[in-house]
């Protein structure tokens, strides 16, 4: 980090003391967000950070930008209103697995469907932290919590699958403490026009400690995750000798050099492809059958709601004879009383 950038990084911090638990993954995510903004040199006043309710949703208070800590589940809707009202703002939405996928599921899918230009950072710790430990819509089936003492009997949502199912054009995944991947995907999300969903595998040190450990722990992370990069073959593993290829309509994990497999046989990541079929397969990969995909999984272009809304207004304004309130009220069937 250069001296200049360090200064800029500080400027995104507000004067409020950060109140997350020591060791919470949220601290690292906050750092990544501030670093991306500093790197991109976005003026603070042009940033609006909107959140709902939950531990993650306290984040706007720690940003020296415009911020709005709203109500449970509604951040996508509030953020949509902000962006449509003033498309010049860079609108970020901070949310969690409960806020976005349970109480706010409806607004989440509709924001994606409309493709409004907001950057959604979805903190996924698979637990309700602020209410002290109930299962969430991303908790694994059978998960034991205060409200599922005998294990849950529900399947979890997969945020990537939901995003693509709602016709999303941007989905990325990262790990809270992986600053390198986090900043990379958040920057890509910020640059993407349209709704960008970034799922952050986040650790709740109090109520769901180590929930992602089997894939995020240093000692096996390289073998159990794959960092996807557009245009690059899908290789992973400590030895960089494992890869993914398409076998019929299924993905398959292979070892380079075994059974005659060469690097050329591997899938090359095409994040920009409009067809989401492969993106969906990649987003759905789960350990132990597959490595969990990190990085930008899907980043494709489509018309953006807020731009289209603005363009439609400009176009109708140009075309219509009604330019003012007075033009409107005096048009059509009027009469004089003398």
């Amino acid at each position: 980090m250069s001296e200049n950038n360090k200064l800029a990084f500080q400027e995104y911090k507000s004067d409020q003391r950060v109140r997350w638990c020591p060791g919470c993954g949220d601290h690292a995510i906050l750092n990544s967000i501030q670093k991306v903004m500093a790197d991109m040199k976005v003026p603070q006043e042009e940033v609006a950070v909107i959140s709902g309710i939950g531990c993650s949703s306290r984040l706007p208070y720690y940003m020296n930008t415009y911020g709005f800590h709203t109500i449970h589940g509604r951040a996508s809707a509030v953020a949509s209103g902000v962006k449509v009202a003033n498309p010049k703002l860079h609108v970020w939405q901070i949310t969690g697995d409960g806020d976005a996928l349970a109480i706010g599921g409806n607004h989440f899918i509709h924001a994606i469907r409309r493709n409004i230009d907001i950057n959604v950072i979805l903190f996924n710790n698979q637990i309700y932290g602020l209410t002290k430990g109930q299962y969430s819509p991303t908790s694994k089936r059978g998960f034991i919590s205060k409200t599922s003492p005998y294990g849950t009997i529900e399947y979890p949502f997969r945020p990537g699958e939901l995003t693509i199912g709602a016709r999303g054009y941007f989905f990325a995944r990262t790990i809270d403490k992986d600053l390198k991947v986090s900043t990379k995907v958040m920057k890509a999300a910020a640059e993407h026009k349209g709704t960008s969903i970034v799922e952050v595998l986040q650790n709740c040190v109090i109520y769901n400690d180590n929930t992602h450990k089997e894939i995020t722990d240093k000692q096996f992370k390289d073998d159990r995750t794959i960092v996807l990069e557009h245009g690059k073959p899908m290789i992973f593993g400590k030895e960089r000798n494992k890869g993914l290829l398409l076998d019929g309509i299924k993905l398959r994990v292979v070892t380079i050099g075994e059974d005659g497999v060469t690097e050329k046989d591997l899938l090359v990541h095409d994040a920009h492809c409009e067809d989401p079929t492969i993106h969906l397969k990649l987003a759905d990969m789960e350990y132990p059958d597959f490595p969990v995909a990190l990085g930008v999984i899907r980043d494709s272009e489509a018309p953006v709601y807020d731009q289209c809304a603005r363009m439609q207004i400009d176009e109708i304004r140009e075309r219509s004879k009604i330019k003012t309130f007075k033009d409107l009220v005096t048009s059509g069937e009027v009469w004089e009383v003398k």
Binding site: A48, I50, A77, S80, G81, K83, A85, L89, H107
Partner: peptide, 19 residues
Amino acid sequence: AEDEIAGISTAIGASFAGD
């Protein structure tokens, strides 16, 4: 909006933004 709640929530967002 997708529902009544989003109707008012988008409006609150727009108000925050100055409309």
